[in-house]
């Protein structure tokens, strides 16, 4: 099977974020990492390849810095990479991001496209499903298991409140992968070395521009959310805090 894994570079989970001057996005001078659900998507693609053979290609859209997620993907075992490289890709909505990916892969023949179920920055949870519709492929979301069978695949979808559902579907298809579907591997030293010689195709904004439209939704303003609750902050040494907290548990929360 030939599998494409869509990956995104997002700010590190505990990186302190600051707003840019116009208050519409964050300042870019932070540390980045692979969007966590995308790491699980990559791992699942590698496992499928190990089981059934084939090829894994990683793709991302973003400025030069985002090449790092492709390098990590190649080091873990992906065969090649596609980088839609332009700072402008960061500001695209889910619809346009999916259009850009579709344009970049129109010469390729994938059996499956994986994305993480959502990104840690925008959190749209849309790009994979939109991409499926643009490609004209079926899709399934929040996937916890994939089994190849005659004429297609059987997937396990996560539903709410602890329920799951099996779905049979034909290929090619798009799947959005849930975190925790597998255990992530680490890149080996050999893998990191080999990654340097693996093919990485760059795609410019100009090459896909004709496929894009205007963003149909616009971030007017980004801001620190207003607190809806008044939080009482406890300070002091650990011992003092422990004492204060137990007083509160006794007198206010009344659980002691």
């Amino acid at each position: 099977m030939k599998i494409l894994v869509c990956m995104k570079q997002v700010p590190q989970k505990d990186a302190p974020l600051k707003l840019n001057e116009t208050g519409t996005w964050i300042r870019e001078d932070v540390s980045y990492e692979v969007n966590e659900p995308d790491a699980y998507a990559l791992e699942e693609a590698l496992r499928q390849k190990e089981k059934h053979g084939g090829e894994v290609v990683v793709i991302t859209a973003g400025p030069a810095r985002s090449q790092q997620v492709l390098r990590e993907g190649l080091a873990k075992g992906a065969d090649s990479a596609i980088h839609l490289e332009d700072p402008g890709f960061v500001g695209l909505d889910a619809f346009n991001t999916a259009k850009a990916f579709a344009a970049a892969i129109k010469e390729e023949n994938f059996d499956l496209i994986f994305t993480g179920l959502q990104s840690d920055d925008y959190g749209y949870a849309q790009t994979g499903v939109v991409l499926a519709e643009i490609m004209g492929w079926p899709h399934a979301t929040i996937i916890m298991q994939i089994d190849k069978q005659d004429g297609g695949i059987k997937v396990k979808r996560e539903l709410e409140a602890g329920f799951f559902q099996h779905v049979d579907m034909p290929l090619p298809a798009v799947l959005t992968i849930q975190s925790g579907i597998n255990k992530l591997r680490y890149a080996t030293l050999i893998g990191i070395k080999q990654a340097k010689n693996k093919p990485l195709r760059k795609v410019t904004m100009d090459e896909v521009r004709s496929s894009l439209g205007d963003n149909m939704q616009k971030i007017e303003k980004l801001y620190i959310p207003q607190k809806t609750k008044k939080t009482e902050m406890l300070t002091g040494s650990p011992a003092e805090i422990a004492k204060q907290l137990v007083e509160k548990l006794k007198n206010e929360v009344r659980v002691l």
């Binding site: 974020l17 149909m216 801001y223």
Partner: peptide
Amino acid sequence: IFVRQMFQGKFAADVSFAG
């Protein structure tokens, strides 16, 4: 305007429809 959370809830965003 629709308000949504971004960056895992660290920020809120005002989002409008353009089309």
